Amino acid sequence: MTISWEDFRARVVERGEYRGEAEADHATRVVLGLLGEHLVGADRGEIADALPPTYGSLLRDARPAAEPLTAERFVLGVVGWIDGATPATVQWDIGAVLSTVADLVPGELLDRVIEQLPEGYDLLFGHPTSV
């Protein structure tokens, strides 16, 4: 059973300390949409299955990116989609969303996803890997 859309959003609101649900929902849609462009194969579907359908579809429906973004470029990509955002505020947004995702998926799936992404995404998910 997956978490409800309302419960997922409530967790993001709490972690991101958002003033409202709409702000958290927008950040979630931006982060997951961009992440979906960089995940491939069955792992992408497995993560999507762990999310509420509204958010899972953002991963499934994203067109694959021509090339993977570094973690730094991922942050800058999100900045472009959130009004008034800075790299620092977007890191907070990304952390609120991706740490919520990380809590919902099995550890081995999260490890596989982090392995397929460029260096630095482990920190964005709130699960730093050892050096």
Rank of each mutant, 00 (worst) to 15 (best):
G84A: 08
V113C: 15
T89F: 01
D43P: 10
G84H: 08
H26V: 02
V75H: 10
R44F: 11
G56A: 09
D93T: 03
P64V: 09
P53D: 12
A96T: 03
G84Q: 08
P52N: 10
A96V: 05
E67I: 01
P52H: 13
E119V: 10
Y55M: 05
L98I: 08
V78C: 08
L34Q: 08
T89G: 04
T28A: 13
V30W: 00
I82P: 03
G120N: 11
A71E: 14
T54E: 15
Q91D: 05
L59M: 01
D83W: 01
T86E: 10
P118E: 12
E108F: 08
A22E: 15
V101C: 04
R29S: 13
R112A: 15
I114L: 12
L32H: 03
D43T: 13
P52I: 02
E67G: 06
E21R: 12
P64I: 07
P106S: 07
E46A: 15
L32R: 03
R44G: 12
A102Y: 03
G77A: 05
D49S: 15
E37L: 02
L69W: 05
E23I: 00
I114S: 00
L58C: 07
D111F: 09
V79D: 09
V97S: 06
F74L: 09
A42N: 14
Q91V: 04
G80F: 00
A50E: 09
G84P: 08
V75R: 12
G120P: 12
A42Y: 06
R29T: 08
T70Y: 02
A71Q: 14
D25H: 04
V90Y: 02
F74E: 13
R112S: 15
A48W: 09
E21I: 02
A24T: 07
L34V: 08
I114C: 10
G45I: 03
P68N: 11
T100G: 07
A50I: 05
P87Q: 08
V113Y: 04
R112H: 08
G84L: 04
D61Q: 12
Q91H: 04
D83E: 13
T89D: 09
D61W: 02
D61Y: 03
D43A: 15
L76Y: 10
G107C: 01
R60Y: 00
V105S: 09
L110H: 02
V101R: 00
G56D: 03
T54S: 13
P118S: 11
L76P: 04
G33F: 00
R29M: 06
V101I: 04
P68G: 10
L39H: 08
S57Q: 11
A50D: 04
R112W: 01
E23A: 14
T86F: 04
W92S: 13
G107H: 07
T28K: 01
V75K: 12
L32E: 03
